[in-house]
């Protein structure tokens, strides 16, 4: 089976899974199809799925960014810290975004120019950026933001659709175009497939990697700020642990953890599968560890099934020849 064929069948599998989950949800809960619930379904995880979009590029590129959740927390804390010192909110937002950009470029520098593995660099970032965030706000929550800021996170913008959901949709389109029909997108795949070959063929690997990590930091910061607006208050532990959910979404979307393959359609389907599954379980009052285990089992399958399919098909081909 060709790589393309396998990918297609993976998306087919996700689509089938999605149909089953949606059918079960409709069958199970009269509230599921309510407009309010569908909006909440996205809204409750909106920051994670925004970051999952850029994470898709990073992983296809053969790297990983474990620091995204800490960058989300850092941006929110920088914003809250600036605001508390009397900075006008729009400037505080810019400050938060710049902090994210700086954190991302810092990660990128060590990966692209020094050649350290991104797993180690961004693990350090996960710890370090969280540390800075906690120092900035210490142990007291910061709230009482201007009303308009909270409304950005909580109020509908177009019909029942919130600002965050609109931003997600726009980013989805932009990243889809970048990945699948731009020069940068092709480079992302080429580098992810074979770093050495990419280097020897004169591709500006460093520039691509710096761009991706910078974008990852900035988009994570944007997500962190939207999270602050949604909750109306900032604490040092904001978004802690989100990186695992984000990476789960990307891997379940069929993106190879080794880089070089995967596409945004798969990640989009994966987002719908996980969000609908979570929402359905929530409405069926399944929470806590049970919910975590179900999603964990799904991820294990997403890693095992393609690998097993590969192994089996290899053996089969081997027997034929």
């Amino acid at each position: 089976m060709s790589a393309l064929g396998r990918l297609k069948s993976w998306e087919g599998l996700l689509l089938a899974l999605l149909v089953i989950i949606v059918a079960v949800n409709i069958e199970h809960s009269p509230y599921y199809l309510g407009v309010g619930n569908i909006v909440n379904l996205f809204q409750l995880s909106i920051e994670k799925i925004i970051v999952a979009l850029i994470m898709t590029l990073v992983i296809i590129n053969g790297e990983i960014d474990l620091s995204v959740a800490s960058v989300m927390g850092l941006a929110a804390c920088v914003l809250a810290w600036l605001f508390e010192m009397g900075t006008p909110m729009p400037l505080a937002i810019v400050g938060g975004l710049l902090a994210g950009l700086a954190a991302g470029l810092f990660n990128g520098f060590w990966v692209a120019y020094v050649g350290l593995p991104s797993l180690a660099v961004t693990l350090a970032g996960l710890i370090g950026y969280r540390g800075i965030a906690r120092i900035l706000v210490e142990d007291h929550p910061i709230g009482n933001f201007p009303e308009w800021f909270n409304l950005v996170g909580q109020q509908p913008l177009i019909g029942p659709v919130t600002v965050s959901i609109v931003i997600f949709a726009l980013l989805f389109v932009i990243i889809a175009i970048t990945l699948h029909s731009s020069a940068l997108g092709r480079l992302v795949y080429v580098i992810g497939n074979n770093l050495q070959a990419a280097r020897y063929s004169g591709i500006r690997v460093r520039l691509v990697k710096m761009t991706l990590f910078g974008a990852s930091g900035t988009i994570a910061a944007l997500a962190g700020i939207l999270y602050a607006a949604r909750l109306g208050s900032v604490r040092g532990d904001m978004a802690a642990g989100f990186e695992l959910d984000i990476i789960t979404i990307v891997l379940l979307g069929g993106v190879s953890i080794f880089g070089g393959s995967g596409n945004l359609a798969g990640v989009g389907l994966s987002i719908l599968v996980i969000l609908n599954l979570r929402n359905g379980m929530g409405l069926a009052s399944i929470t806590g560890n049970t919910q975590t285990s179900v999603i964990g089992a799904l991820l294990i399958l997403s890693v095992l099934v393609p690998n097993m399919a590969q192994t089996i098909s290899n053996k089969w081909n081997g027997r034929e020849t």
Binding site: N40, L44, L231, N279, G282, T287
Partner: peptide, 11 residues
């Protein structure tokens, strides 16, 4: 937050 929101949906 998620549980509170879902409980609200369920009324």
């Amino acid at each position: 937050i998620e549980i509170t929101t879902n409980a609200t949906t369920q009324g």
